[in-house]
Design a protein around this nucleic acid. Sequence first.
DNA 1: GGGGGAAGGATTC
DNA 2: TCACGGAATCCTTCCCCC
Length: 927
Amino acid sequence: MEPNDSRGQDTILSRVALNDNKAGMQGLDKDKINKIILETSKGSRFYENELKRERQVNQRIEKMMRYKAKVTEQQVQKAQAEVEKLTADLERSRELDRVIVHVDMDAFYAAVEMRDCPELKKKPMAVGSMSMLSTSNYHARRYGVRAAMPGFIAKKLCPDLVIVPPNFDKYRAVSEQVREVFADYDPQFLPMSLDEAYLDITEHLEQRQHWPESMRTHQICEMKTTGVEEMSELEISVGAETDTLSPVLFEDSPSSSPVVSGADVKVEVFGTSPEEAVREMRFRIEQKTTLTASAGIAPNMMLAKVCSDKNKPNGQYRILPERKAVMDFIQQLPVRKVSGVGKVTEKMLAALGIISCSQLGQQMAMLSLLFSETTWHHFLQISLGLGSTRIDRDSERKSMSTERTFAEMSDAQEQYSLCRELCHDLAKDLQREGLKGKTVTLKLKNVNFEVKTKAFTLQCAVCTEEEIFAAAKDLLKAEIDYVSPLPLRLRLMGVRVSSFISIDDKQPRQKSIVGFLKMASDYSSSAQPSKSEMVSVLGSSVSSTWEQYPEPRSPSFTGETSKPFSKWRTESDCASEPQQQTFFQKAHAKRLQKQYEQEETSGPYTDKISKCLPTDSTNNSAFIVRTHKATVKTDETQRCTWISHPDTHELAAKSDSNLPTTNPVSYAAQTKTKSANMLQCFTCPVCFSQIETKDLSSFNQHIDKCLRSELDNKSRSMDGCQYLCEDKNLLDNQGDAEKDHHKAIDLSSVSRKSVLKRNDEGPHTSSSTPLFEICAHSGFNTPFFKRFESMREKGSLVPHETMSDSGCVSFHQTASSVEVISEPLDMKVSTLTCPVCNQAQDTDDLILFNHHVDMCLNQEVLLEFREAVPPMAQSNSKVKDHEQYSTARGKSKRRGLSPPPPPKKAKAISTRHTIDKFFKGNSNHKF
DNA sequence: GGGGGAAGGATTC
DNA sequence: TCACGGAATCCTTCCCCC
């Protein structure tokens, strides 16, 4: 259907044309208004998108009509029987004894603004912006200006329109006043927004019957008496009322309270009926705020809501609690008036000849064949005038989100920046409400107004900026990659967190590392803990200094290699197959849990993620050094991690130029403090000799030297850089209780300086401060690690009692209390030997070298994989498990509407080399 | 086949 | 001149997994 033909225009009218389903908008010249709206909108991207959506609705209708044409009489009869049965059931359960009230403030935001700025009262005005109006006063409505209309179109309709920017603080304050009144009638009232609420006044009315008149008498604040004005039918039925104080918000509105004049004071006495109670409530609201409210009184929420609109503004309407009264009211009610029936549903029903609720009831059998069960059940309830008679006050929030609309944004870096900002804002909101959710959803709207949402469910609930951003940025990256090389042209971005965990899940039971390993053992031997158990187990108390974190990668790296331990895949594997969690997934879960615990005891995370430190170009993991601002109570547990090298930011910036990085909070100050010019004793983390110096650079030179030597050794001996390897011999030589500390070491661990600073201040305990934490996914047959082992066995190092929450093992020096000061190594290696192919690489460029290593490993793994898996099985679920990233991005359920997923990346990981395998493989070991 | 995740859409204020 | 929001919920459909 072409947009320019007359039919197309009629069609689009249902979407962009004036919706006069609002108080104060009857009797307008709709044709004229619609002509202006169409002329203003036509040709815009918004309009084009609306056309597209309209076509989709038309297709739905056509499909529905085709189906309807095929429905047989027999089907209808059968459906009719079902409808009648359900109708009888519903009738039996009909409740009429509750008195439900829906109160809605009249043009709330506009009314507040007019109250505070009386000159606006005589002008057409609206609250909002040129982009969007929140509401309008009744003058403006006469021009067709209404809520949810863009300001620029409103200006076309009414050039004199005054647009006032919203002031939500003010509205909240007024709303609070109104709610104080509500509470007197129903302490458990249900606010729906700042300006409306549901109340169940049944109990209030019972009590009210026994109230003396004095309790129902209210003094009238002298404000303005305008005399008797027009009255609605309702008010005539209620009794003569005099507008005594309406701030002339609605000059043609019905009047309100009757006045009983005393000698000096005017008072008003209200009766005991529901109408009187509600009138009193509205009276008190008006007295308190000088704003008017409208109300509906009915036996259920659905009807009360419709009723509150019946005599708007400044009026009320009651449906008596009798079946006949309800059915009489419903019969002529247009379906569109019912909350929940929007323009699409209205149009679909209209196509079936259904405009009123009585028609809805007449065609229920057919509707039951054309719509889903949920939908037609809802229709049936509407047609019977049924609704909820109990106000659900206990419903919990299910999601929290933040989104922003902006001028076109095509630059990826800007988009990542914005994404982080949104995550920051959302994290603050979540933490304010103490919420943590497992599903992160990214919402994008492109410049053509097409909306796309991408969601990912993590195994653990998250609430910090970093955690949310970690997921959101990957979702964003997937979209950017998908449209690449074209830019992703956005006009809106939003981030949502949902699937909140329950209170129970937030309170994990503590378990020791023994428990953890026992569980890992049990786990692998089929006894699966529940999710909450899993979270609990992973919540052991540890000190965290280093954390594995996915490095935001620059585009130049994206296609290089698959990244074996990206958080993305880690989490998705967790989510989909908890029983196959890798060690790192568990460790990550534990980290998140630990974070939460710290927040619980010490307030929110101070968000001091000092830096993502890319260690080298092949390593997909960056290290985040967290500093906790007084998050732990005792000295024993108070630990800080410092970055000792001032160049780390530059390094990070170079490696991570495409993405916004975390603000290096107070980094410089910390560095300076730690670099105080005093003689200190350092332990070389590589050769473990004691170096006494006050010059860190000389110490660093020493470490560099050691590391070069170490790396050279390692490159010859290790069987895979950051890829896992197992050393059964080593394991066999260890005591059972210590085996849990045998983690591998990775290239990144080696390629960093670790400065051990003696802490001579005050007493120390060996268990208080970690000397070293070796990141979990590393090889442990390296000389480097073995030296650790040796030191540990000698008693110089005491393994921390638990596995670190970052998936690291902490070591503590017994001789003195130390702090770990770590940084990535700015290594200068002249010649590097590939640990995979054992070929010397003619380069000292780590990026090139690491790229080569990745390529070698990919080839090896692919080779192994091909050998291990028959060709036909290579596309099975085992493969899919590693493709969560692609899955999340391309797993559109609406294949016809969504683009196909991007090509899947080659993997460079073999499940052979996982710690998880290690645990499983050693499940017979007695830990 | 049911449960649940993902994605899109409808609806409300 | 250009220019159509933000937050939340519920529903439907598709699809995967058990």
